[in-house]
């Protein structure tokens, strides 16, 4: 008897999970919209505090890594194993760069006494406090997703190395890729909402 792999079923399962993620971040964006409506000036002030160069750099890093993940799936299907390994390694490296940037960004904010429950925020404008509260929750949750995505890509990389993923069995790589693209999707909205509001 031959065990059939239900590729479509595996993919539908992954997409169902992604829908729940979309709604999770959607809920946070509702909060953002409602408070933005209430405190537009404070949100503009808060947005100017954020470094749009680092934000743009991180956007570029994530877009490129999304491209390399998509290319690695093409590579494995075309049978070029070495290229797949290289592209996946590069994608994980991009995730790492993203997190390092985030570390410096958060570090600078915390250094300027801007973090949840800090003196500056508690005694300052309520709108600014909400803006940075949302900033830390949303970018923090997104950062957590970047870490999970890197773990999934690393597992896929190991599976390619040991031959558990090859041209005919790519579901693990495919689904890790989908997760990584979702991380990218969320960042595409986070970037203009936090860094570019004026």
């Amino acid at each position: 008897m031959r065990a059939e792999i239900d590729r479509v079923g595996i993919k539908i399962g992954m997409w169902l999970f992604l829908y729940s993620e979309i709604i999770l971040f959607g809920g946070l964006f509702v909060l953002y919209a409602a408070y933005f409506h209430k405190h537009p000036e404070s949100f503009a002030v808060g947005g100017k505090e954020l470094d749009r160069v680092i934000g743009a750099l991180n956007t570029v890093v994530l877009l490129i890594s999304s491209f390399t993940v998509a290319a690695s799936i093409t590579a494995i299907q075309k049978g070029s194993r070495k290229l797949t390994i290289g592209l996946l390694g590069f994608s994980i490296f991009c995730g790492f760069i993203f997190l390092v940037n985030k570390y410096f960004e958060w570090g600078a904010k915390i250094h300027h006494d801007i973090y949840p429950n800090s003196e500056t925020l508690v005694n300052g404008e309520p709108g600014l406090n909400i803006f940075f509260g949302l900033y830390y929750v949303i970018t923090g949750l997104h950062g957590l997703h970047v870490i999970i995505g890197m773990v999934l890509l690393s597992i896929s990389l190991v599976w390619v190395l040991v031959g558990k993923i090859d041209g005919s069995k790519i579901s693990m790589l495919d689904n890790s890729g989908l997760y990584w693209h979702l991380v990218d999707l969320i960042w595409i909205f986070v970037f203009p909402l936090f860094y570019l509001v004026l």
């Binding site: 693209h181 909205f189 203009p192 909402l193």
Partner: peptide, 18 residues
Amino acid sequence: VALAIACLKVTFVLLFFM
């Protein structure tokens, strides 16, 4: 305008990368 551009970008990611 910022959201419209973001939606356009997301559409490309969804259609091709995903």
